[in-house]
Computed example of a mutant assay.
Amino acid sequence: MNAHTPTTTSSLRPVRTAARCATVTLALAGIAWGVRAIWEVRLALAGVPASGPPDQGNGQHRPLTALEDSYHLVGSLGDVAVVLCAIAFLMWLFRVRDNAQIRSGRPPQLAWPWVYLGWIIPIVNLWMPRGIVADVHRAIAPGERLPRAVNWWWGLWLVAFWCGAGLAVSESRDDTINRAYTGVKWLLAGDAATVAAAVAGIFVVRAITDAQQRRVNG
C-alpha cells in the first residue's frame, strides 16, 4: 500500500477551490434568506392591504403593492443565490467523493446519480444527502467520529423544510406573501433554520475538506 501512495495522492482532484466556492455560496444563500426574512417581517407589520391578498382566488390576482413587488425581487435574488449554492456544493461534494474513493480503494455506497437525485426525490431526500456526506467522511477518515457539524447541518435543514422553506418550494410567491400576512411565525422559523443550516454547511465543508487534506499531507 505504501508503495502506491505517491501515485494515489497525485491522482487526487484539487478540492480547496471547490471548497472555497461552496463556502462563499453557502454564505450568500444564508444572507439572501436573512434578507427574505426581513421583508417577511415588513409584510407582517404592514398587514393585509384593504384590497386583500395578492391572490384573490378563482385565478384572479390584483396588482402588487410596492412592498410586495420588492419581496418578489428579493425572493428572485434569493433563488439565484440558492441555485449557485447548490451547484457549488455539489461540485465540491463530487470532488471529495471521488478523492475518498481513490484514498479508500472502495466505491461509494451509492452510485453517482444519487448525489443529485437524493435531494429531489420525496422521502429519500430526508436522509440520503446526509448519508452521502457521512459515507465520504468514513472513506476519508475511517474510524474517526463524524463531525458534529454534519448532524447540525442536516437537522437544521429538516427543521427549515418543515417550518417553511420546504413549503415555499411548491407554492407561488404570492402564496408566501399571504402566509407572511397571516402566519409569519412559521415562515420566520423556517428562515432562521435555513440561515443556521447554511452556516453549519460551511463548517461541514471545512471539516470534510480539512480531513481529506490531512490524509494527503500525511
Rank of each mutant, 00 (worst) to 15 (best):
W33G: 07
L28I: 14
E68R: 07
S10P: 01
A66N: 05
S10G: 05
L12P: 02
I38F: 10
A37D: 07
L43K: 03
V35A: 15
G57C: 08
D79T: 13
V41Q: 09
A32W: 01
T17E: 04
A27D: 01
H61I: 01
L26N: 09
V48N: 09
A32N: 07
V74T: 12
A27S: 10
S76W: 09
L26S: 11
L67V: 08
V35E: 12
Q60G: 00
T9Y: 12
W39C: 11
S11T: 11
N58T: 08
Q60T: 12
G30V: 01
S11H: 08
L73Q: 09
T25M: 15
V41I: 15
D69S: 15
W33S: 14
A18M: 01
H72V: 11
V74R: 06
R13T: 15
Q56A: 14
Q56I: 08
L12D: 09
V15N: 03
L43N: 03
A50V: 10
L45K: 14
S11R: 13
W39T: 11
T9N: 11
T9C: 08
G78V: 04
Q60H: 12
D69Q: 14
P63S: 12
P14I: 11
R62T: 02
A29V: 04
G78A: 15
L43Y: 05
R36M: 14
P53E: 04
H61P: 00
E68F: 05
I38P: 05
P14L: 08
S76G: 12
R20H: 04
A19F: 01
Q56T: 05
V48K: 12
I31T: 12
I38K: 07
A46I: 07
T17Q: 05
L28D: 05
D55N: 15
T65P: 06
A29S: 14
H61S: 06
Q60W: 03
V35H: 11
L28R: 00
R36T: 15
T17P: 06
A27V: 09
D69M: 11
R13K: 13
A46R: 04
G34Q: 04
G78W: 06
H72N: 02
L28M: 11
G59R: 09
H72W: 09
A19D: 01
A46S: 14
P54Q: 08
S10M: 13
G57L: 10
A66F: 06
G59W: 03
L26F: 08
N58E: 11
P49T: 04
G57E: 11
A37R: 04
L45G: 00
A66L: 09
R62G: 00
W33T: 15
P49H: 02
L12C: 14
D55G: 00
V48L: 15
T9G: 03
N58Y: 13
